[in-house]
Amino acid sequence: MPLVEIRNLTKQFSKGGETITPLNEVDLTIEPRDFLSLMGPSGSGKSTLLNLLTGIDRPTSGQILVHGTDITRLSRARLADWRAANIGYIFQTHNLIPVLTAYENIELPLLLLPMTAAERRKRIAIALEAVDLTDRADHYPRQLSGGQEQRVGIARAIVANPTIVVADEPTGDLDARTAGHILQLVERLNAELGMTLFVVTHDPQAASVAARRLQLDEGRLVESEAAAPVAALDAGRRRA
């Protein structure tokens, strides 16, 4: 069974008396350990698809089956619970809570799951190590650089070991060098930790790290031919 199955997904909304259809009968299947990127011009519906996939928005019609559960039929409260258990969200602007330390920000998704404090500590330590920020655990967001903030955001997204990690323009607010480091980190999540990733971006370099590259064109989803991800190629060269 596929991890995610999107069937005939349509999203319409009205703007100035005009009906806009950013997604028109979209179909998509995501398998476990897949790494997908979604590109498209501004306003093409990339973020809309991501929002529907994470259950923070509702489609006009169609189904989104995750592990066989149609999330479009869940209540708002059930969706929140479902997100806590299944979705890791990496935001463009990090969206760290300014009054909480890096450690406490990473802990947030774990507070939604039934687990002991010891288990939480263990998982946070692993997540901090994965993003190489163990020594910044007690720092507040204002004491971190933009790249460090995004790494904390990534640690927060992966700490609960979600079914799928989604990223909305994860390098959009970063300079080129820091963006490169973040992309390497994201690629490692898939290659080394086997996480399923869905990245929305308008940056071709960011999209190129994904094994499956999708394009939104006038409400239709088009998948380009399979190509070896850039970062994976780099890793392959390093190993060689």
């Binding site: 923070i56 409260a77 806590a84 969200y89 935001f91 939604l112």
Partner: peptide, 10 residues
């Protein structure tokens, strides 16, 4: 963002 992470509105 807190709701996107999974905290309920309430």
């Amino acid at each position: 963002a807190l709701q996107a992470i999974g905290f309920r509105r309430r």
